[in-house]
């Protein structure tokens, strides 16, 4: 008799737990306000990444097309993957002295692991994080970028 009773109480308990689970899923079905997904391409205009989001490495330029990079190559040395290459050139400055300045700051986005060592170690704060995250391109060579803009010069206050 006891076994008979257990048999049914077991079924009852089982069904109760199943109904509890269904209560949750059914509850969410009638709560469309809890939907958490983002409508990504539609909300592109309003979508803003966080300030410190690691999208890519960029070199900020001011209105006079001036950046802060001295071309010292510390970022190149610190990069674990060799995703930064710095080409320098010699130029005579206003005082007539020959100085080494950055010619091309080449950044291979495809090789970057976003560890942030280049930005952390940069002595003149020339590079920083950009918030772009849509990096899809049809040609891999487009992922190699030159960070300093053509014709840009170094800011005066930055010492080489």
């Amino acid at each position: 008799m006891n076994a008979f009773f257990n048999y049914f109480s077991e079924i009852g308990r089982g069904v109760k737990t199943l109904l509890k689970g269904m209560q949750i899923t059914n509850g969410y079905f009638f709560k469309p306000r809890e939907i958490v997904t983002q409508k990504y391409p539609e909300n592109r205009a309003t979508l803003k990444m966080f300030d410190q989001f690691k999208g890519e490495v960029i070199m900020p330029h001011d209105d006079n097309n001036q950046h802060r990079c001295t071309g010292c190559g510390i970022c190149e040395n610190n990069c674990p993957n060799g995703s930064i290459q710095i080409l320098t050139k010699k130029e005579t400055n206003a005082e007539g002295k020959a100085v080494r300045i950055v010619d091309k700051h080449i950044y291979h986005l495809s090789m970057c692991t976003f560890c942030g060592l280049c930005i952390k170690t940069c002595p003149s704060d020339a590079i920083t994080w950009g918030q772009t995250f849509e990096h899809a391109v049809f040609d891999r060579s487009k992922l190699t970028k030159v960070l300093n803009k053509p014709g840009s010069t170094i800011k005066k206050e930055v010492k080489g």
């Binding site: 899923t25 059914n26 969410y28 079905f29 469309p32 809890e34 939907i35 958490v36 997904t37 409508k39």
Partner: peptide, 10 residues
């Protein structure tokens, strides 16, 4: 659609 709504999706 039903499963999406259950799972907090669209």
């Amino acid at each position: 659609r039903v499963c999406a709504f259950i799972q907090n999706r669209l």
